[in-house]
């Protein structure tokens, strides 16, 4: 793990630092919000339908009188958790297969490239929908479908970077000196791939969260009453005139989350 820490930039560019800060704020709210103000995201109280904030619900109530504070905190745990799990799986798969393809070459590489290209030809969300139909459980389906879509990006990045690095004199010298593949990966490949992976992971997480929200918004993703960002938006959309703030809450939360991830991914090239 020391190599990983070394490969991260010590003096982060401003954009990256701001992105990390925004994400820390969102994560802080999602994890600590329900601890600070205890409550239940599913408890209905029709008397308080679309009511404004009070002590038990600092963000007010939705059309069924459920606390938006708690629903939002719950939603901000669910989507990022699915996204991070999918990105981690896809990243690991892409890294392993990309390195394998570049190192082995030949038919292994050709086969993997054809597979990746074939997946690229399918619209991502369609693929997720197909997997959702097959897999039991919505969260599990999202994780599997999104992983299947996302690994291609990591695979392509890893393969390109690895191929260039493996032909460099530095790697040739290491091999001549008798170092094994594990050392070559640790000292030559990983430091080149890691920054690319970090950027791709941040973008991938953002795309995934957006995808989950989009499917929720068209009512084919998470099912009610699960608090989910897209689902919350579409549920509150009919009441935009009476309770504009209630609708804006999930919109702003999604925007903040995606902004943080995009800033983290962008940053400045060193």
């Amino acid at each position: 793990m020391t190599t990983f820490a070394n490969s991260l930039p010590l003096n982060m560019p401003l954009g990256r630092a701001m992105g990390a800060m925004v994400l820390a704020l969102v994560a802080g709210f999602a994890l600590l919000g329900p601890v600070l103000v205890p409550g239940d995201p599913f408890a209905q109280s029709l008397m308080k339908s679309l009511a404004g904030p009070d002590a038990g619900a600092p963000f007010g109530y939705d059309h069924l009188g459920r606390s938006l504070w708690h629903r939002l905190a719950h939603a901000l745990r669910l989507s990022p958790a699915i996204a991070l799990a999918a990105v981690a799986t896809a990243g690991a798969a892409g890294l392993i297969l990309g390195t394998l393809a570049a190192a082995r070459g030949g038919w292994v590489e050709r086969l993997l490239v054809i597979l990746a290209d074939a997946l690229m030809a399918l619209p991502g969300l369609l693929l997720v929908l197909i997997v959702l139909a097959i897999m039991p459980g919505t969260a599990l389906g999202f994780w599997a479908g999104l992983s299947l879509v996302l690994w291609v990006e990591f695979f392509r990045l890893t393969r390109a970077a690895t191929r260039a690095t493996l032909t460099s004199p530095a790697v040739q010298a290491s091999r001549l000196l008798g170092f094994r593949a594990a050392y070559v990966f640790r000292t030559h490949l990983w430091p080149e791939i890691a920054p690319l992976m970090l950027t791709a992971a941040a973008f991938g997480t953002a795309t995934t969260i957006m995808g989950i929200a989009a499917l929720g918004f068209v009512s084919v993703g998470m099912r009610a009453p699960t608090p989910e960002l897209g689902l919350m938006m579409v549920e509150l959309l009919p009441y935009w005139r009476e309770a504009p703030m209630a609708l804006l809450t999930p919109v702003l939360a999604t925007f903040t989350l995606l902004l943080g991830l995009t800033l983290l991914a962008g940053g400045q090239k060193q």
Partner: peptide, 29 residues
Amino acid sequence: CQKLYQDPVAAFARKRSLGQSLADVARLH
């Protein structure tokens, strides 16, 4: 059998200090 390269910068791991690279070789051998 070892080799010296025309461009020595390209023959070392880019993001590793020279001392680390040399220590790795010394340990291996």
